[in-house]
Nucleic acid binder design. Structure first.
Lengths: 187, 187
DNA sequence: CCGCGCATCTGGACACTGTTCAGTGACGGG
DNA sequence: CCCGTCACTGAACAGTGTCCAGATGCGCGG
């Protein structure tokens, strides 16, 4: 399958080294044939990104099931996200660094997957905010998860190098822990 | 100057539309001449990124001076960061989405600038953690700032669209506010 | 078994990218 | 006036995404 070959190239050579000709060569196809299957390169990349989103979601779900209490569960979620970003840094980076041209709108299935991920965070966070309105719960989940994502993004970019300690798990644990503690204060 | 022209193209056409030929044409140079000034395209982009970092630093410093109390000051810092990312989304995106090839190591001045930015956050955070060790202070600053960066990054990518409320300032205020409240709990 | 029609696929072509470098031109000293 | 040196040019190379005229193969009617 073309998608599998493309993912292999992505993992091995990174986002910039992923060209249509390489994918075609890898599976014995012709470039032209590839354009009969995919509308253009962006569609292929978008499909890979959806698969990456699925993979992340799977990791998060597994991590959530490993703990029952809300606090540790959130920490496990964040840790799984960080870990995925480190292990599959090229796939992770492409997911957030590749942008569709304005002429192409994202496929609806892609937005569904993002929504599903946020909802997982939301439902994990819910027990900690029993009295919050749905809107507030959603906003809080988005805030916390953006923070976790920021740690993953900067870690993957190597911007933490200046700090002697470069284990991003420590940052995510501290972020989730402190944020949750702060939530308790306000209730 | 070539850099100014390149920044103009970047702002108008985005990161992907910034080619050496366009820069050369814009200032009446020849491509070859550009390669006498810059070693390659990556160096030009790296220089622009340094200027972007400077611009962000300036905004943060101004924002820090507008408030005296630590809490509001941190909120102002985060707000300025978010605002910059929205106003100069293309420059902001290139700063974090363009990666030097492994063969090129970053210029030392670039790392200095990043360090300077983190130190600004650190010194603003210091009054809230009077008893913390320098290492812990540094880690806490990195954690908080990564979170703020995550909000900016996701907002610029349009990943917040699914949430009805898309004003990223609200997220940053909540993140900083809750995080600081959480810090108080632990002391 | 032959010949025709159709769908499928191919490989080259086009416009673009970063990068290099042989050659052209201008300018100044003898 | 001639020659040397230097700056500069624009063409060339290898790569990219994308498209399409034409070849190629395949099935079916005769």
């Amino acid at each position: 399958m073309a998608i599998a070959a493309a993912e292999l190239i992505l993992v091995r050579e990174g986002f910039a080294g992923l060209s249509m000709r390489k994918v075609a060569d890898a599976i014995g196809y012709t470039v032209g044939q590839l354009y009969l299957v995919f509308q253009n390169q962006d569609e292929l990349l978008a499909i890979i990104n959806e698969r990456t989103t699925d993979a992340i979601y799977g990791r998060l779900r597994d991590a959530a099931e490993s703990r029952s209490e809300a606090g540790p569960r959130l920490r496990a979620l964040a840790g799984a996200y960080i870990e995925f970003s480190q292990q599959h840094c090229h796939r992770f980076r492409m997911l957030f660094e590749h942008h569709l041209p304005p002429s192409m709108q994202p496929r609806p299935s892609a937005e569904l997957r993002i929504k599903r991920m946020f909802e997982l965070v939301e439902s994990t966070l819910a027990p900690l905010l029993p009295d919050a309105s749905p809107a507030r719960l959603r906003q809080t989940a988005a805030t916390l998860w953006s923070g976790v994502h920021g740690i993953a993004a900067l870690a993957v970019s190597g911007k933490f190098k200046w700090a002697g300690d470069s284990d991003p798990r420590r940052y995510s644990d501290q972020l989730v822990g402190t944020f949750v503690a702060g939530l308790d204060v306000k209730t």
